[in-house]
Amino acid sequence: MAETTLSATRTLAKASARLKVQNINAPLWRNAIFVLPYLFFFVTLLIVPLFWGIWLSLHKADAFGVGRFVGIDNYLRLFRDKIFIQAIGNTFYFVLLTVPALAIIGLMLALALNRKTRTAAALRTIYFSSSVLSVTIVTLIWRIVFIGNFGLLATIYGWFGATPPAFLSDPKLAMIGIAIATIWWCVGLPMMLFLSALQQIPGDIYEAAALDNASRWRTLWYITLPSIRRTFALVVIIQIVLQFQLFGQAKLMTNGGPNNVSKPIVFYIYEAAFTKWDLGLGAAASEILFMLILVAAMAQYVISRRKGEEV
């Protein structure tokens, strides 16, 4: 009996010694098993294609394989191409048309529908429902609206004996027509993000403002907007990243026309890589698009962060 007790005591002493030696804060590498699937897909689908695209952009490549190393020749060819320069301008113009409108309209809808009523819930569902549609359905709907002579817009204008604007064929209106369809399609996500932020603002602040007889405008300007400024910056950055990648709407509504005025960078990449089979040129254009998105998103982040620190 004494030997059994002594053996048990020694076992407990050894276990306690091992626990003392082991550092509580030491990393347990077996926990890496839980992040390995994510790391695998992150590296496979993002990191590897990024560096593969950079490598491909420095070579003469086509559908039959990668050829000789050409350095920055593909990039020089891009900046000598007037259509590519025009595509960059078209993309920036589209971003300027859509991103501010999506942020402002999304915020206005969120402010209007931030109520605990059945009507507000139904309207939130209706406004968000367009976001789940595919680009094919969205462009089909808006082609029916914009198409000349017998479209919905032409029918409404015809009631008043007026001529409808040619959104799909007028060089000055083609990109505006695509922007209208895109805003209608994408406004649901900004609205829901703003709604989530508005519902996180404590009600005590509004009650204190009401006791001070603060007007709705002052409450909005000094309480609501400062409280959601980070969400506003997030919405703008997300929309910049998304709208720089315009392709489906331009392809299906105007096919990049008329005269390339609605051809964005992604459309140019598609034509270069999969129509002309110049993969090196398409990869170079993709890297330039990546840098433009990165610079635009980081600039917006820095500006919004500085404004937040000043407030």
Rank of each mutant, 00 (worst) to 15 (best):
S130K: 04
N255C: 12
G151C: 04
N213A: 15
G256T: 09
G203P: 03
S134A: 13
M175H: 00
D204H: 08
P202Q: 08
G256D: 04
I144R: 01
Y75P: 08
L193G: 04
T5L: 14
Y222K: 08
I238M: 12
D204G: 11
S131A: 15
A121K: 12
N90I: 14
E287H: 06
I85Y: 06
L19N: 05
A8K: 15
S215H: 13
L58M: 15
T136P: 00
L28S: 15
R115A: 15
V135S: 12
E3Y: 07
G89N: 10
A120Q: 07
L78P: 10
R118H: 14
P202S: 13
S262V: 00
L294H: 00
I293E: 03
F42N: 05
E3A: 14
C186V: 05
A63P: 09
P37G: 14
I33S: 13
A61M: 08
A197E: 05
T155A: 10
I47D: 00
M191Y: 05
A87E: 02
L45Y: 15
T91G: 03
T155Y: 07
R10S: 01
F274C: 09
R30Q: 15
A17D: 13
A87R: 07
Y127R: 01
F274M: 09
G257K: 04
S286L: 10
T125G: 15
L189V: 11
V235G: 06
K307V: 14
G148P: 09
V132P: 02
P264A: 02
I144M: 08
L152H: 03
A87Q: 06
P171M: 11
L76Y: 03
V302Q: 04
F41I: 10
I147L: 07
K82H: 02
I54A: 11
E309I: 11
V99Q: 01
A122G: 11
R18W: 04
T254C: 04
L242C: 03
A299R: 02
F69C: 12
T275N: 11
M191F: 04
I269H: 06
A297Y: 01
I33Y: 02
T275G: 02
A103E: 10
G177E: 03
A122S: 14
T91S: 12
L12D: 08
F290W: 07
